[in-house]
Amino acid sequence: MSSTVTSKPKLKTSAMIASIAGEGQRTTAAPFGHALVKLAAERPEIVGMTADLAKYTDLHIFAQAYPERFYQMGMAEQLLMGAAAGMAHEGAIPFVTTYAVFATRRAYDFMHQTIAEDNLNVKIACALPGLTTGYGPSHQAAEDLALMRAMPGMMVIDPCDALDIEQMVPAVAVHKGPVYMRLLRGNVPAVLDEYDYRFELGKAKLIRDGRDVLVISSGIMTMRALEVAKELAADRVDVAVLHVPTIKPLDTSTILREAGRSGRLVVVAENHTTIGGLGEAVGTELLRAGVTPQFRQIALPDAFLDAGALPTLHDRYGISTSVMATTIKSWLG
């Protein structure tokens, strides 16, 4: 029997680890791991802790560089959070990693009670945020931002790309208090270095201006929004992109300023369900301030999402670049 490639079309996979990088896109390897190693050289109080997912959150880079500062807690997410709290009480700054679902759903009460209530210096970095795996609901963290936003005292960050991650790591270490960070791992797209952009904790940044549409986005949806803007420019639609990597606390003044410029359709785009994420956060602030532009949400449905190949699912749920472009065009009439 032949073992060479047959003419059968390649099936699309529901594998757990799927790359979010587009074909031919520039990427940076393990930006979180390398940024943490760099920072740890100056900050001896930083330790790394994981729940059997060092290799899958790029924390293995830190573990190799600082084996004596790395704590493998086993696949026990509640223990991970409680022990990180204990470490922080004793003066360490733990960077803890797991998948977003297991931090936010399995260990929520432990983060709430042992970390957040005591305002401890624990930095929680979670891979597979939102819909970034085809593995089905057990691994798809479609509601992680809603859960973490609801926790008092918790800072919440949704970085877009490798640059965001590299600059976010030292910034969160300076911040005093707990932080939840969405993490992209492996070969992470590099996008924002093409723009005049720098990550600043708590700040929204206008990456691109435009007259017709304002997309307010976070995480990988900013990358998508920038692609959509290029695509729609060909149709003479001028799209502005406001990147909001810090979801909590929200940079309300920048958002109000941009959304308040008249005549633009405001679209909030997020890799998260329509419930409790950036869209609802922005919508609420706009209403409170009496700013009422035409407002739309691009987000995941309030549903248990399918298993399948990531590109299939991003199309199905409307967060791929092509579907997003079509949707925005349809709203413009």
């Binding site: 529901s14 594998a15 757990m16 085809g134 593995y135 089905g136 057990s138 298993a307 399948g308 190949a309």
Partner: peptide, 14 residues
């Protein structure tokens, strides 16, 4: 169909 889109046999058991 194992692990393919819309298969009854996704990679993680459900």
């Amino acid at each position: 169909t194992y692990g393919s889109d819309d298969s009854r046999l996704p990679m993680s058991g459900m």
